[in-house]
Design a protein around this nucleic acid. Structure first.
Length: 474
RNA sequence: GCGCCCAUCGUCUAGCGGUCCAGGACGUCGCCCUUUCACGGCGGAGACACGGGUUCGAUUCCCGUUGGGCGCGCCA
């Protein structure tokens, strides 16, 4: 059995979007699953639209997601010489021919086709014409001499057996008049030269697959196994657009998602393994297979991603989560500000507060948010509503808590919770419910009535300034 | 328009002819926990697009309809 080789082949015309990320994930998993190789090829033959920025974005995205490819990324553009040679060899073998039809002629064909209500098909006018008849000064393209009878069959691992009539597949251009290869030629040649055994890609390429198969046949090469996976749609079922989730993966990093959570969410989009929802990387590699990929498109659902991310955060050890959080700070809203507070003392405070914080956060962004109270300036400002409530008075048993709180000094959530627990032992009050509003009160971001209640007590029994001093001091 | 693909709760999905008055997860609703929020626990509502076949029997097989998607470039 030959070794499995998969590849991810994005064109660098934008960021790495979520569909591409999943395609990459599937290829990566499949290769790892079978002890094979996962390659990265940048399809940059379109010089107009390809940018260096996009290449960087894609590479960063893959790295962040933890999808490591083997060897160096291959630039398709760097291989034009080889593509040209293959095209020429096809002419020599009779599998292709030069076509001198002008853009105007093709345009006519297109318009006529439209008028007659049929798809545009090149009419093969140069298929059997002698090159000596070539009009002067016209640079030809090279076209595949495609079979016109019968059908081309794609034996797809996901879509099953798909047959396309050859009459619907015209003589596609292999080499442009400027000597650069088209996508069709380039993929085939590169996949062959790279030894790719399995092509896993979006099913928007399904029809292309038939055309590519024809090229493989003309070349006498063995075609790789193909698996065309359904696309990911937006929440309304239409094509994923910017207003949906068609963001670059870096956007997900900025939204505070963990790579492991995103991977888990993505692998379950279009693929399943019974009722299992959570997969460690090892389990994914173990269980992943093409046969279990569904054939219907799926929609992207942020709510589920967020829930899953929450699970991953809670399951991450505090030390690891702290490291991840600190690493991610530059990308998170409010992150850099928090980062500036993290001198050794600040860092210790954050570390101590993390266990309480992560219980309540679904994303790293929420974690940053929640950590705000640790560093907000004292004394805190009370808003109108809070003042009102302070004036009305509050609950006695929290008031009784204050001396203890004043004594601890360390305003981290475990410290607060420990004090509350200590107090709760006598009063019967449960913990956690008190600690959180205290924390919120100290940030001045109090929003719920319960929090106002606490503020009220604080305001009456002790001055906020005094509390702040306690917080700062010890 | 032509070709191809798809169709189970709002969403992701399990189901590969009888075990399904359809299972899980997210979301949602209610209760519990709790003087907030979150976590957690318990429970509820919620789907086989429609119409024909095939079969003793269809969510599962076939055909059509409807609805989505993709492709139809000297873009990838």
């Amino acid at each position: 059995m030959t070794k499995v080789v998969t590849r991810f082949a994005p064109s660098p015309t934008g960021f790495l979007h979520i569909g591409g990320a999943r395609t990459a994930l599937f290829n990566w998993l499949y290769a790892r699953r079978h002890g094979g190789t996962f390659l990265l090829r940048i399809e940059d033959t379109d010089r107009e639209r390809s940018t260096e920025t996009a290449v960087t974005a894609i590479i960063d995205g893959l790295r962040w997601l933890g999808l490591k490819w083997d060897g160096d990324a291959i630039s398709q553009f760097a291989r034009v010489q080889r593509h040209r040679e293959v095209a020429e060899s096809l002419i020599a073998s009779g599998g292709a021919y030069r076509c001198y039809a002008s853009p105007e002629e093709l345009d006519e064909m297109r318009q006529q086709a439209r008028a007659e209500g049929r798809p545009m098909r090149y009419d093969g006018r140069w298929r059997d014409r002698d090159p000596s008849e070539a009009p002067p000064g016209v640079k030809p393209v090279i076209r595949l001499r495609a079979k016109q009878e019968g059908e081309t069959i794609i034996d797809d691992k996901v879509q099953g057996r798909v047959a396309l009539a050859n009459k619907d597949l015209d003589d596609l251009v292999l080499l442009r008049s400027d000597g650069t290869p088209t996508y069709m030629l380039a993929v085939v040649v590169d996949d062959h030269d790279m030894g790719v055994t399995h092509i896993i890609r979006g099913d928007d390429h399904l029809t292309n697959a038939a055309r590519q198969l024809q090229i493989y046949q003309a070349l006498g090469w063995e075609a790789p196994v193909m698996a065309h996976i359904p696309l990911i749609h937006g929440p309304d079922g239409s094509k994923l657009s910017k207003r949906h989730g068609a963001l670059g993966v870096e956007a997900y990093r900025e939204m505070g998602y963990l790579p492991a959570a995103l991977r888990n969410y993505l692998v379950r989009l279009g693929w399943s393994h019974g009722d299992k929802e959570f997969f460690s990387t090892e389990e994914m590699m173990e269980d992943f297979d093409l046969a279990a990929i569904g054939r219907s498109p799926s929609r992207f659902d942020f709510a589920k991603l967020e829930n899953m991310n929450g699970h991953y955060m809670r399951a991450t050890t505090d030390a690891e989560l702290l490291a991840t959080l600190i690493e991610s700070l530059p990308y998170l809203p409010g992150g850099p500000e928090l980062g500036r507070r993290l001198d050794p003392a600040g860092r210790a405070k954050l570390a101590a507060a993390l266990p309480g914080l992560k219980e309540r956060a679904k994303t790293l962004v929420e974690l940053v948010d929640g950590a705000g109270y640790l560093f907000s300036a004292r004394p805190l400002q009370l808003d109108e509503r809070a003042r009102e409530i302070v004036a009305q008075g509050g609950r006695a048993h929290i008031a009784a808590l204050l001396p203890r709180l004043a004594a601890i000094g360390e305003w981290t959530s475990p410290a607060i919770e420990a004090a509350v627990r200590d107090y709760a032992g006598e009063s019967g009050a449960k913990l956690g419910q008190i600690a959180q509003p205290l924390r919120a009160a100290l940030t001045g971001r109090a929003t719920s009535p319960g929090i106002f209640d606490v503020l009220a007590v604080l305001g009456r029994e002790e001055s906020l300034g005094r509390l702040s001093d306690c917080a700062r001091a010890a």
